[in-house]
């Protein structure tokens, strides 16, 4: 099935949860990512239960600091 991840059409296996998608997309530090699903920020506690559907729009949003380091 097709998802739009950060604006890019991506083909993924059906039935993945948000957590599984984060793993599959090689998101290195999932704790540093906030996820928006179809225009709504998804609670972190729901990453495990939320199963992605065809045509879902997913945004991975990353924490970023300011200077040389994201501290």
């Amino acid at each position: 099935m097709n998802l739009v991840i950060n604006g890019k059409e991506t083909n993924i296996t059906a039935g993945l949860t948000v957590n599984q998608l984060l793993a599959q997309e090689n998101v290195q530090m999932p704790d540093m990512v906030s996820v928006e699903l179809n225009g709504q920020i998804l609670k972190r506690t729901k990453f495990d239960q939320t199963i992605l559907k065809d045509d879902d729009k997913v945004e991975f949003l990353y924490f970023m600091g300011g200077g040389s380091v994201s501290n």
Partner: peptide, 21 residues
């Protein structure tokens, strides 16, 4: 905070030596 409700956990943040800009 609408986007990030709270700071990331300590072990999730890259250390000084890992990041750059």
């Amino acid at each position: 905070r609408c986007i990030f409700s709270a700071p990331p956990p300590a072990n999730a943040v890259p250390s000084c030596s890992q990041a750059g800009v």
